[in-house]
Every structure is written in C-alpha cells, then in structure tokens.
C-alpha cells in the first residue's frame, strides 16, 4: 500500500492537492481564497496528467535533430490536455475574479456569508 504511494508519489501528491483545493473552494468564506482553492484544484489535475504522461529518460515531444523514433519522446497527449485545461481554468478564474470585483464594489466585503445576509436584507 505505502510502497505504491511512494512509487507513485507524484500522483499521490496531486490527489492530496486536489483535496486541499476542493475543500478550500467549498468551505472557505473568503472569495479570493476560494479562487486560490480552485486554481490549486485544477493545477493538481494538471500535475496528475503531466506525471502520467511522463516516461523516464525521454524528452519533450518536439522533434529535434530529425529524431523521429517513438522511443525518444514522452506521450504528447497529456501535455496537450494540460495546455487546453490551463486555457479553460484561466478563463474561469478571470470570470470568478470579475464577479468578486463586482460583489466587492457593491457590498464592500469578500466574505460570501456576509454578502449573503446583505443581499437578503437589500432585496427580501
């Protein structure tokens, strides 16, 4: 059990990071911390993907010096997925930050529970 965790330590770390990010996004009351949690959660998945795509002793999947052998390169698909995923999570973070700015301008608070009470008071 523990031996497996040690050999796959990158994946294990990624899942732990995912858990930390997930609980931060779910339970933190501060919006900025929530967004940090979201970034951690997504980055953890990218770490997992990158770790899975890596093959010991091989190079990045970019053809250099005309070497075309499959043996020379790591699996390029996980790297491609990570790039796509980063684009998605950047745009979502931007949207979340924009929402936070809007909320802060209106209620002068970053605390989601405090905002909830103010919203209900403002428009019952």
């Amino acid at each position: 059990m523990f031996a497996n965790l040690l050999t796959n330590y990158e994946e294990a770390a990624a899942i732990i990071l995912f858990g930390i990010g997930f609980t931060t996004l779910l339970l933190q009351r501060n919006m900025i911390k929530k967004i940090i949690g979201f970034s951690m959660m997504d980055s953890a998945i990218y770490l997992f993907l990158a770790a899975k795509g890596y093959i010991e002793g091989r190079g990045a999947p970019i053809v250099v010096n005309g070497v075309q052998s499959v043996e020379a390169y790591i699996n390029p698909i996980p790297s491609g997925l990570v790039l796509t995923g980063i684009v998605v999570s950047v745009s979502v973070s931007a949207l979340m930050l924009a929402l936070t700015v809007r909320l802060y301008r209106r209620y002068h608070s970053l605390d989601i529970d405090e905002i909830a009470t103010m919203v209900r008071k403002e428009e019952p």
Binding site: L26, T100, L103, I112, V119, E122, E123
Partner: peptide
C-alpha cells in the same frame, strides 16, 4: 445584488 450573488454561488458549485 441578487443575480450577482446567485451567479457567484452558481459558479462555485459548478466549478466543484
């Protein structure tokens, strides 16, 4: 105010 707050909660749950 209501829609902004609703959208924030919507995003949080959806991101989870």
């Amino acid at each position: 105010g209501r829609t902004l707050f609703a959208a924030t909660r919507y995003m949080i749950m959806n991101l989870l």
